[in-house]
């Protein structure tokens, strides 16, 4: 079984990251947008794990844990704000949030 090289892992991470970013650009539902951010963060986490594996250190995995925790915190706050958002704008379409401009 061919080992998964660093490059492969990084490419996968990059693809994931790009997917997340593309979602960010195309999706208008706030919840989905938050999900896209999660994808990007996890892509980064994956890259960390792969990098850690390259150097045989635990640091990469530790960082992944940090990322995970922070992502969680972020989503928690994010969802709370999403509730206020829905109340305020009667929907979850982020494009509606353009009262402030110029």
């Amino acid at each position: 079984m061919a080992s998964v090289s660093l490059e492969h892992a990084l490419i996968l991470a990059a693809i994931l990251f790009a997917i997340g970013f593309a979602g960010l650009l195309t999706r208008r539902n706030l919840i989905v947008v938050l999900a896209c951010i999660e994808i990007m963060l996890n892509a980064a986490g994956l890259a960390f794990v792969a990098a850690g594996a390259r150097w045989g250190q635990a640091d990469g995995q530790v960082m992944f844990l940090f990322v995970l925790a922070m992502a969680g915190a972020e989503v928690a706050v994010g969802l709370a704000i999403a509730i206020r958002f829905r109340q305020s704008l009667k929907g979850l379409d982020v494009d509606d949030a353009d009262r402030m401009r110029g």
Partner: peptide, 13 residues
């Protein structure tokens, strides 16, 4: 400065 989040992301991207 349209106020639209996605255009902000697009500019940064």
């Amino acid at each position: 400065q349209t106020g639209r989040l996605r255009s902000y992301v697009a500019v940064a991207g």
